[in-house]
Measured scan of single mutants.
Amino acid sequence: SIKEIEKEEIIKVLKEVNFNKKLASEILGIPLRTLYKRLKEYGI
């Protein structure tokens, strides 16, 4: 599903940037606030 793909992509990017959420949100092209929402939604 799209949610699974998105979750995997978020985890992959977070690992690449050593869990720097600000940098991860910039790489993913989403606002930091949205990233936090996704992390909560996906239980990351």
Score class of each variant (00 low, 15 high):
S1Y: 03
S1W: 03
I2P: 14
I2S: 13
I2R: 12
I2F: 11
E4R: 09
E4N: 11
E4A: 12
E4H: 11
E4L: 12
E4F: 09
I5C: 09
I5L: 14
I5Q: 13
I5E: 09
E6Q: 12
E6C: 11
E6M: 12
E6L: 11
E6K: 09
K7V: 12
K7G: 05
K7W: 11
K7C: 08
K7Y: 12
K7N: 05
K7S: 06
K7F: 13
K7A: 09
E8A: 15
E8H: 13
E8G: 10
E8S: 12
E9F: 14
E9H: 14
E9V: 12
E9T: 14
I10K: 00
I10R: 00
I10W: 03
I10N: 01
I11S: 04
I11H: 04
K12Q: 09
K12L: 07
K12S: 07
K12R: 15
K12P: 01
V13G: 01
V13S: 02
V13C: 06
V13D: 00
L14K: 00
L14H: 01
L14E: 00
L14A: 01
K15P: 01
K15E: 08
K15M: 12
K15F: 11
K15Q: 12
E16R: 11
E16M: 14
E16W: 08
V17A: 09
V17T: 11
V17D: 00
V17E: 02
V17N: 08
V17R: 02
V17H: 06
N18K: 10
F19L: 03
F19M: 06
F19R: 03
N20M: 04
N20F: 04
K21W: 15
K21P: 14
K22W: 09
K22A: 09
L23E: 07
L23R: 13
L23N: 04
L23D: 04
L23C: 07
A24Y: 01
A24M: 03
A24V: 05
S25T: 04
S25N: 01
S25Q: 02
S25M: 03
E26Q: 14
E26P: 02
E26R: 12
I27L: 10
I27T: 05
I27P: 00
L28I: 04
G29V: 02
G29T: 03
I30Q: 01
I30G: 00
I30M: 11
I30S: 01
P31Q: 07
P31C: 07
P31W: 05
P31M: 05
P31Y: 03
L32E: 04
R33K: 15
R33P: 08
R33E: 15
R33M: 12
R33C: 12
T34R: 05
T34N: 07
T34Q: 13
T34A: 09
T34E: 15
T34M: 10
T34D: 15
T34F: 06
T34K: 08
T34S: 08
L35R: 00
L35G: 00
Y36Q: 14
Y36A: 11
Y36S: 09
Y36R: 13
Y36V: 15
K37W: 08
K37C: 07
K37E: 15
K37I: 10
K37L: 12
R38T: 10
R38Y: 15
L39Q: 01
L39S: 02
L39F: 03
K40N: 07
K40P: 02
K40C: 11
K40L: 14
K40T: 07
K40Q: 12
E41R: 06
E41K: 06
Y42A: 06
Y42H: 07
Y42N: 03
Y42S: 04
G43R: 07
G43E: 09
G43M: 08
G43D: 10
G43V: 05
G43A: 07
G43K: 07
I44C: 07
I44A: 05
I44D: 04
